[in-house]
Computed example of a mutant assay.
Amino acid sequence: MKLSINLFMTLDGVSQSPGSPEEDPRGGFTRGGWLMPVFDEGCGRAVGEWYSHTSALLLGRTTYNTFSSHWPQITDPEDRVASQINNGQKYVVTSGSVADVWADTTTVLGKDFLHRVRELKAQPGDELQVHGSIQLARTLHQAGLVDIYRFLIAPVLVGEGASVFGPENPASTMTVTSSTVTDSGVVSLELTPGEFSQAAAVVEDGKDSIRQD
């Protein structure tokens, strides 16, 4: 399976608490719910496409708890995302146990979870998907285990908040494999990581050019 990170993000890179102010107020974050005013049909289609590739979910403890308090209540048989989340295999990275809220929930102990993720990636299937779970996503990114990045980038600025990217991250040049803009201005991006590259603006024969070594 490929490992994908699927996140909602503001223009300033924050992914914390997109759904409501109460979702994730850790660190005193008070601007939760920033995605909902711009979440339109195009966003819904993008998220539906994300989940169409899900073979299993890999979640952090906080996101698992958030999902378990919401998704089991969605019983609409036409909601394919809810069906995938409720009925699919879920792996939870945690230092302790979790209640068996759903069927097919397996805990992955934190001390050896990167080794376990590598084992899961070696299994057959489409994608092992991370949704939310910012700290987990950051750790997987830093370990170089992510094959696909998907973001819904909202035209919103919130200032401080948790982000998957930071100054300690490895350098990388991303290749955009698909992109769309929804009616409300949300940018849907799918990217794959690659080697970091650099170039320089130079003047050659009186022309402004780009030189890449």
Results as ranks from 00 to 15, higher is better:
68 S>P: 07
74 I>V: 15
82 A>N: 01
117 V>E: 01
72 P>W: 05
107 T>D: 09
88 G>R: 02
74 I>Q: 06
36 M>S: 13
75 T>N: 11
100 D>P: 12
55 S>L: 04
117 V>L: 03
49 E>R: 15
95 S>F: 08
57 L>D: 08
67 F>E: 00
121 K>I: 00
90 K>V: 09
65 N>H: 15
36 M>D: 13
117 V>Q: 01
87 N>V: 00
32 G>S: 05
60 G>A: 06
59 L>R: 01
127 E>R: 09
95 S>I: 10
109 L>T: 07
91 Y>Q: 08
42 G>P: 02
108 V>C: 09
64 Y>T: 08
104 D>R: 12
109 L>A: 14
49 E>G: 13
67 F>N: 00
111 K>L: 10
114 L>D: 02
51 Y>A: 00
80 R>A: 14
119 E>H: 08
51 Y>C: 01
101 V>Y: 13
51 Y>V: 02
111 K>T: 13
69 S>F: 04
74 I>E: 07
65 N>T: 14
35 L>F: 14
90 K>Q: 10
101 V>G: 14
112 D>L: 04
67 F>W: 07
53 H>A: 11
71 W>V: 02
44 G>T: 02
43 C>F: 06
61 R>A: 12
70 H>Q: 12
41 E>C: 01
74 I>L: 05
115 H>M: 12
41 E>V: 10
77 P>F: 00
105 T>M: 05
30 T>I: 13
90 K>N: 05
119 E>M: 11
108 V>N: 07
35 L>S: 15
115 H>S: 15
93 V>C: 04
83 S>I: 06
58 L>Q: 04
89 Q>F: 03
88 G>P: 00
79 D>R: 04
32 G>R: 04
58 L>N: 05
105 T>A: 05
41 E>P: 02
120 L>V: 06
73 Q>F: 04
110 G>F: 10
58 L>H: 03
66 T>D: 13
65 N>F: 14
51 Y>L: 01
112 D>E: 11
54 T>A: 12
42 G>D: 07
48 G>L: 05
94 T>A: 15
32 G>P: 07
95 S>M: 10
37 P>Y: 09
107 T>Y: 12
31 R>C: 13
83 S>M: 10
40 D>C: 06
118 R>K: 14
96 G>R: 14
50 W>T: 01
56 A>H: 03
51 Y>T: 01
120 L>H: 10
66 T>V: 15
65 N>R: 14
117 V>Y: 02
128 L>T: 03
53 H>Y: 07
89 Q>R: 14
99 A>M: 09
40 D>W: 07
35 L>W: 13
127 E>V: 03
102 W>E: 12
48 G>V: 03
63 T>M: 07
61 R>V: 10
91 Y>D: 09
115 H>Y: 11
69 S>V: 09
95 S>P: 10
32 G>C: 09
125 G>P: 06
120 L>F: 10
60 G>M: 05
101 V>C: 13
31 R>N: 15
114 L>S: 08
73 Q>K: 14
125 G>I: 06
65 N>W: 11
81 V>T: 12
61 R>T: 11
44 G>C: 02
124 P>Q: 01
57 L>Y: 12
52 S>H: 01
68 S>T: 13
39 F>L: 15
42 G>A: 06
81 V>C: 02
73 Q>W: 00
